[in-house]
């Protein structure tokens, strides 16, 4: 396959709107123009296997993800959306090309540097929640901070503690977890678990939060709740969220939807609505006849 990235060329794609934001009462967002993107890919490729069995999961992708925005990545199964997220998050190594987190090029970093990067600058929300069963909600939330450790110097230590405590309280209040902090994951509903996972992802104030099908294991009400929290964390708490999903309704919560097909960018929708996302997906389907992954998660 020799498809190059031509996101706007497909005739049936939803009209590409200018990235203008006439919405809500937020202060005019200067970041979209002035601040550098939170994450970037340049000719990023990932190849699995060799010879006949070669699969290009990601094929020379160029894309920017704006800071302070909620971006959804959509695409059929095998379109490379998870691979793109893993590469941007430093979980996986690219075959070629570059990935940047802020100004840091993460392609080429060694495992130790990647670990520190994930710990300090990236947050994760998983489909399976992936909370540690032996820890309480509070312990789970604070885990990334504990992994990072506290400054050795006493005053800095106290300051860091106080700052993180304040941020912790804010998160807990925002996510409505105050009365669930002493519970273990087994004693929490799916929605509550995912909210704990979001708090855990945000506790270290990461540059980017990556969410991988965060609503895949939730009923629609809990799913909606989780998505609104993710949106609030962007709009009210100033975070950057990149979410992989197959659910058009979930994608509609985002500020922007990037469509992937066969390892390449196949569309880009700003100010998505469920309808515009569906239309984009339909267009994709008619483009290459692939079967879209609109079925249930698993």
């Amino acid at each position: 396959m020799d498809r190059t990235v031509q996101p706007a060329e497909s005739p049936a794609a939803a009209p590409r709107q200018a990235v203008a934001r006439p919405k809500l009462s937020l202060p005019a967002d200067p970041r979209s123009a002035a601040t550098p993107p939170a994450a970037r890919a340049r000719a990023l490729s990932k190849v699995y296997g060799t010879g006949e069995a070669t699969v290009r999961a990601l094929d020379a992708v160029d894309i920017d993800f704006a800071a302070g925005a909620f971006t959804a990545i959509m695409g059929p199964s095998g379109s490379g959306k998870s691979t793109l997220m893993h590469l941007l998050a430093g979980l996986d190594t690219a075959s070629s090309g570059q990935a940047f987190l802020g100004a840091t090029e993460i392609t080429g970093l060694d495992d130790g540097a990647l670990t520190r990067l994930r710990r300090d600058r990236v947050g994760f929300v998983f489909q399976q929640f992936n909370l540690l069963p032996m820890f309480t909600a509070e312990q789970n939330i604070l885990l990334p901070l504990e992994l990072a450790g506290l400054p050795r110097e006493a005053r800095a230590r106290a300051a860091a503690k106080a700052a993180s405590r304040e941020w912790f309280d804010t998160l807990v209040a925002t996510l409505g977890l105050a009365d669930r902090l002493t519970h273990r994951p087994a004693e929490l509903s799916g929605g509550q678990q995912q909210r704990v996972a979001i708090a855990r992802a945000l506790i270290a104030k990461p540059d980017v939060v990556f969410a991988d099908e965060p609503t895949g294991n939730l009923d629609s009400r809990s799913g909606a709740e989780v998505l609104s929290f993710l949106r609030r964390s962007v709009r009210e708490l100033g975070r950057t969220v990149i979410m992989v999903t197959h659910d058009p309704a979930a994608a509609a919560y985002a500020d922007r939807v990037v469509l992937l097909a066969d390892g390449a960018i196949a569309g880009d929708i700003s100010e998505p609505t469920p309808e515009s996302v569906l239309a984009g997906l339909d267009a994709l389907r008619s483009l290459d006849g692939s079967v879209l992954d609109t079925a249930a998660a698993r």
Partner: peptide, 16 residues
């Protein structure tokens, strides 16, 4: 395995 992967994802180093 998955739990370890989660820990690695959120910043547990190999050494840890």
């Amino acid at each position: 395995r998955r739990e370890s992967a989660t820990l690695r994802a959120i910043g547990l180093s190999r050494r840890q």
